[in-house]
């Protein structure tokens, strides 16, 4: 219980730091992002005082002390009020983010979990069958595939399986004719659209999990408790899974949390290639249009998501390792 409380405290502290970083970023940058954003907004018509206040809270205005700005910023974050996007005028930033988030969370979340489980199993197998083709193939393949830039894998898949082969849709998360709803037809359509982006993330992230698990597994195979388990005549499968792999997975879980950020980053590029309507594509749109309010809000929401995912991984670690319970 103390372990969980510690982790909750750390999460709160980290969240605060991330929110503060988000506050500092535009203010540390040269020029005045707030003025630029307001000027752009003004092109769409008169800016309401509420919108102006929200934008200023986010990006900073030359007037007012830093401390006042910080307080009003915290207030707007708490109210989930990030102003209005001018790229998608007059939609609110909060609304845009809320609409995009589920697509990314489902796509990246599911694929990452699948990749982790699958990669971990392959890593266990590679270490257990060390020196055989079951080891060499995933190791060499994994090394090479993890050096692929995410967007390149995506481009190749789009080109060969999308344009040339014509087997898969090349962009979007669902057909243009479909409307989002909870029907079998729509879910099927969405899954069909998700295959290529998902495959991209799977191919590129799998190698890292395989290599990581393989090396920790090789370490645990040298531990005395594995030798002792063999001396006691346990079945090879028990030794491999309950003794070696069960311990090897712990350090990997930590790196899983840390690598999550990289996968999320990579998936942003993937979304750009597939014009997938998640936060990555939205961030790309915001950046190319210099839509600072939208960009800041997206960065904040991505960071918070990764922090929460890390928190879950930490708790899971605590459940899996009895040593943290003391």
């Amino acid at each position: 219980m103390r372990f969980v409380l510690n982790k909750v405290g750390l999460l709160a502290l980290t969240l605060w730091a991330a929110i503060t970083l988000n506050f500092l970023l535009p203010r540390l940058m040269p020029g005045s992002p707030a003025d630029a954003a307001l000027a752009k907004l003004a092109q769409n018509g008169p800016v309401s005082p509420a919108t102006k206040a929200a934008v200023e809270a986010q990006l900073g205005v030359p007037t007012g002390s830093m401390w006042e700005q910080y307080l009003s910023y915290l207030g707007s974050v708490a109210r989930f009020d990030f102003g209005v996007s001018y790229t998608f005028f007059p939609q609110s930033v909060a609304g845009l983010v809320t609409a995009a988030l589920p697509w990314t969370i489902i796509l990246v979340g599911l694929v990452t979990i699948i990749a982790f489980i699958f990669g971990t199993l392959l890593g266990v197998l590679a270490a257990w069958k060390r020196g055989t083709w079951l080891d060499t193939l995933p190791t060499v393949g994994g090394t090479f595939a993890s050096a692929f830039p995410y967007f390149w894998t995506a481009l190749l898949l789009v080109f060969f399986l999308g344009y040339v082969g014509g087997w898969f849709p090349t962009s979007g998360a669902f057909s243009r004719s479909a409307t989002p709803e909870f029907s079998l037809a729509f879910v099927g359509d969405a899954l069909y659209h998700a295959i290529l982006p998902a495959t991209t993330i799977l191919i590129t992230s799998l190698g890292g999990w395989i290599l990581g698990m393989r090396s920790t597994m090789i370490n645990t195979l040298g531990e005395d408790y594995v030798t002792f388990a063999e001396a006691n005549g346990l079945r090879p499968r028990t030794v491999a899974l309950r003794y070696a792999a069960r311990n090897a997975i712990l350090p990997n879980l930590t790196s899983f949390g840390l690598a999550l950020g990289a996968v999320v980053g990579g998936s942003l590029l993937v979304e750009r290639v597939f014009a997938y309507p998640g936060v990555g594509y939205l961030l790309y749109t915001a950046v190319t249009n210099q839509d600072y309010p939208l960009m800041q809000a997206l960065f904040l929401i991505i960071t918070i998501s990764v922090l929460l995912a890390n928190f879950i991984v930490d708790i899971l670690y605590g459940i899996l390792d009895p040593r943290t319970r003391r």
Partner: peptide, 13 residues
């Protein structure tokens, strides 16, 4: 824990 690429994108922007 802060995702690097989004941070890079924001700074670069």
């Amino acid at each position: 824990v802060i995702p690097a690429l989004p941070l890079m994108i924001v700074i670069a922007a």
